[in-house]
Nucleic acid binder design. Structure first.
Length: 458
RNA sequence: GGAUAGGUGGCAGAGUGGUUAUGCGUGGGACUGCAGAUCCCAUCUAUUAGGGUUCGAAUCCCUACCUAUCCUCCA
């Protein structure tokens, strides 16, 4: 199948051609572990989780690497504020990160690469950058000289001479240009450090990623993903670093940037303090609803968070899940081919392959739900089987089906149901309603289909 | 100020030249003892504003206004 990618380099939709047939090297910028992640962060991880799963469903062998920034100014700051060792902060939030993402059904990452495990590679890369004449040492660190890389700004569309230096550019009188970015930070008293040719210090942020990807993938790879707020300068810096050494025309062949999740008007961010943590979101909403909400839009368009939208997502997920449950227990004897599941499956995959259009793919699913619901009472074995297989496939990629336990194997529930149906037959509705409400309170949902009653655990 | 995306019905959010997406909400109907779920019909008579191109524009061009993101750590 031909797969199109919305490439942020040049903002074009282009055909995806992996460097090696059938294999994909995918790198996504992971978290800095100094705090809990929020659902804005989660959007990125959910999008790439679904993306990696889709590629795998198409037979690609996906090597999906995510970096973990486990040494950084913010970690040091947090450690100071809490008066705890920085490694303790890292350990705490890293384990929380794994917990949060796994509770979001994210399980597609092949390898998490921690920056501090690559210090040697980082130092080596910086050495080579200095040798190549594009980096220089100052009193407080080693810097990359941006003017030495002519393509700097191509990804973001920035022109170096038009960039207005921010008000809070780090004080460093030795820097040759305000745009030069740090590769190695020399230690200040009390800070964590590693030995290096430039004395004790720690790596800058941008160099971590290229050291990791060079070590794991080599100087070039297929797809680089991240939040749209990282385009400049982070991804420009990565490109500048790696391509200055490799002399290749690209770092990654394709770039995919996930747009921000906004709260009211602003993006959700830790510094703005308008965050909802993953844990909090999951207290109120199902994983499936959160995933549906995130995937029901183009990954490269900003998305507005609101309780109302989440509630709507929850409704839709219920509809899909309810459909799945009904399909699972359908026992009709209709002819095969009443519904063309295969056509829906093709349309679904086409949408996914068309620039990862998860929204169009969802629409296909919802249309099929309506279509099959129409004939649910008489749906045949074969259509039913195809439908279930398709929904399982959809779920394995998008994670939007809440699998509701089918009602079997509980004698006590069965007894109460038949007691209730006896009462209904006799017209003792007060009693039957009473039994229904007891069942509901015990987590058993029931639905009358004529004289028969279906039930399941909620 | 520069860069990059946008401005669609009550809400969310598709649609890149020509049959009123889709979901949620709302109203009605079918079904049900009543519910619930489901289906059907309807509703909301949407395309930021003003020009232009065209037989025809939400879709292309121009202008204005507005919004987000980046230019500073940030998914």
């Amino acid at each position: 199948m031909k797969i199109l990618i919305k490439d942020s380099m040049g903002h074009k939709t282009v055909e995806f051609k992996p460097m090696r047939e059938g294999r994909v090297k995918l790198f996504v910028c992971g978290p800095t572990v100094y705090n809990l992640i929020h659902i804005g962060n989660a959007r990125l991880f959910i999008v790439f989780d679904a993306f990696a799963k889709f590629l795998r469903s198409q037979g690609f062998e996906v090597f999906y690497v995510q970096n973990i920034t486990d040494i950084d100014d913010k970690i040091i700051k947090e450690a100071k504020e809490e008066n705890k060792p920085w490694k303790e902060i890292v350990a705490r939030y890293l384990s929380q990160y794994f917990k949060d993402t796994s509770s979001l059904g994210i399980d597609s990452v092949s390898l998490f690469a921690r920056a501090t495990n690559y210090i040697e590679e980082i130092i080596d890369q910086i050495k080579r950058l200095i040798l190549a004449g594009v980096a220089y040492e100052t009193t407080d660190g080693v810097y990359f000289e941006v003017s030495k890389f002519t393509d700097y700004g191509r990804l973001s569309g920035q022109q170096l001479d038009k960039i207005r230096p921010g008000a809070r550019v780090e004080i460093s009188e030795d820097k040759r240009s305000p745009s030069d970015f740090v590769l190695w930070k020399k230690m200040k008293p009390g800070e964590p450090y590693w030995e290096s040719p430039w004395g004790k210090g720690r790596p800058g942020w941008h160099i971590e990623d290229t050291a990791i990807t060079e070590a794991l993938f080599g100087p070039e790879y297929d797809i680089h993903g991240g939040g749209s707020d990282l385009i400049f300068p982070h991804h420009e810096a990565e490109i500048a670093q790696m391509r200055s050494l490799s002399k290749s025309g690209y770092l990654s062949r394709y770039w995919m940037h996930v747009a921000m999740l906004n709260m009211k008007e602003d993006k959700m961010s830790k510094s703005l303090g308008n965050i909802i943590t993953v844990a909090d979101a999951l207290k109120k909403h199902s994983v499936q609803a959160l995933r549906f909400f995130m995937l029901n839009t183009s990954f490269d368009s900003p998305l507005h968070y609101s309780e109302e939208s989440l509630a709507a997502a929850e409704e839709t997920v219920s509809r899909i899940s309810e459909f799945y449950r009904k399909l699972d227990s359908a026992r009709g004897s209709g002819k095969a081919g009443m519904v063309d599941v295969k056509r829906s499956r093709d349309a679904f995959m086409d949408a996914m392959a068309n620039g990862f259009d998860t929204h169009a793919a969802m629409t296909v699913v919802l249309d099929l739900v309506t279509e099959m619901n129409r004939t649910m009472d008489r749906i045949g074995t074969r259509d039913r089987k195809e439908g279930i297989e398709f929904m399982n496939e959809v779920d394995s990629i998008l994670g939007i089906v809440r699998k509701i336990g089918t009602g079997k194997g509980s004698e006590i529930v069965e007894k109460m149901i038949s007691a209730r149906n006896e009462a209904r037959k006799k017209g003792s509705y007060a009693l039957s309603d009473e039994l229904r409400s007891i069942l509901l309170q015990s987590g058993v949902a029931i639905q009358d289909n004529g004289p028969d009653t279906e039930w399941w655990f909620t």
